[in-house]
């Protein structure tokens, strides 16, 4: 019996050494979604600085917040997440102020993406990629000249439309179409959007957040309201070369991802170094090309390949006046959103 126990113990130690690996001294723990950086970028950073990057993933912003709350802002050195959740992170005191003297490339940030609602004084965050919600469609199979959200309601599109699985975004865009703010807390306005949304139900074949581009390319759906990254992925596939991408005329919904350093990060120095490294023009360009999100780095724009330029940089004539970001709303308003969304989903089947 003792032998079994000792063998077990040995095994446990063996495995835990394999799992822990190097010491925590020169480590940078990055916490974000999978696939946010090309491998070369991480490798080169490690080579240049001698810091080992530990790349940890979450699946949703909400889970990230939950873990940060649990670990009281320690355990991670750098987090990249969506705008609205960063607002919560900051308000809960889970982020620390950036030391801009350590970030020599700071002025490379595209000013369009600065001073956003979640960090009005840019004290805590540096933007890393942005996305505009667009409509992608296959003109060979769709006879409507799509210009905006209202065209998605066209009777000829029955059972052929896909939308992203984020209720605040989809309902928000319907609110924009009706002339309201995406972030209204007025229950009547939200319910009106809910009624309008139900009219879209017969056309819906697919509601999901991940790889809508695959369904567009496979022809399971012909029109979709997609995230920017999905539009880029559709356009860069050989089967998607003839697809059309529309910035809806009724107004735009967009989102920004931001990097921040958690309040009790063990290695905030390394985090600053990494931020500075990413803000380099060439490095930034390879990151945005890899992710398929819009560049938030002015210095990176000129390094982006011409074939991708129209997707990864802001169009010059873009009307950003009627553009909005999904923000946090009161719990009561969020409950109404949840309710009308459930009703919409139910009427789709």
């Amino acid at each position: 019996m003792k032998r079994i126990v000792s063998i077990l113990l040995c095994l446990t130690f063996l495995f835990s050494f394999a799992a822990c690996g190097k010491s925590a001294e020169k480590e940078l723990v990055i916490y974000t979604w999978a696939g946010m950086f090309p491998d070369e970028v991480i490798d080169n950073f490690e080579k240049e600085t001698g810091i080992t990057v530990i790349y940890q993933n979450f699946d949703t912003d909400e889970n990230m917040l939950m873990t940060l709350e649990t670990t009281k802002g320690s355990d991670y050195d750098l987090v990249i997440a969506d705008d609205y959740i960063i607002e919560q992170v900051i308000s809960e005191g889970l982020a620390q102020k950036l030391d801009k003297t350590k970030i020599s490339n700071y002025e490379n940030i595209n000013p369009t993406f600065m001073g956003q609602f979640y960090d009005k004084d840019d004290a805590y965050t540096v933007p890393y990629g942005a996305g505009i919600m667009q409509i992608a469609y296959n003109p060979d199979k769709v006879n409507v000249d799509i210009k905006g959200y209202k065209d998605l309601f066209d009777k000829s599109l029955e059972g052929r439309v896909g939308v992203v699985g984020n209720n605040r975004v989809v309902t928000g865009l319907i609110l924009k179409m009706l002339g309201y703010s995406m972030n209204t807390e007025n229950e009547n306005e939200i319910r009106e959007a809910g009624t309008k949304l139900k009219e879209l139900a017969p056309n819906i074949n697919l509601i999901k957040d991940e790889y809508l581009n695959e369904d567009l390319l496979a022809g399971t759906i012909d029109v979709a309201l997609v995230y920017q990254s999905q539009a880029t992925l559709t356009a860069t596939d050989e089967k998607g070369s003839n697809f059309k991408f529309v910035m809806p005329e009724e107004g735009l919904g967009f989102g920004v991802m931001g990097m921040f350093v958690p309040s009790n990060a063990k290695n905030s120095d390394a985090a600053h170094k990494f931020i500075d490294y990413i803000l380099d023009g060439e490095v930034g360009a390879s990151c945005f090309s890899w992710m398929g999100y819009c560049s938030t780095n002015s210095a990176a724009d000129k390094y982006i390949d011409d074939s991708l330029k129209s997707f990864l940089t802001l169009p010059e004539n873009l009307n950003t006046e009627n553009a909005e970001i999904v923000q946090n709303i009161s719990a009561d308003a969020a409950d109404v959103h949840e309710e009308i969304w459930n009703e919409f989903v139910k009427s789709c089947n």
Binding site: T60, E62, N63, G162, G165, N167, I204, N205, L206, I207, K208, A331, A334, D335, E338, N342, V345, K346, C348, N349
Partner: peptide, 21 residues
Amino acid sequence: GGGKFILAGNLIENQLIKTHN
């Protein structure tokens, strides 16, 4: 199901993760 079918389990997930209720 292409996101068109909500199960009882989805209700829990949504309340827990999306609505924080």
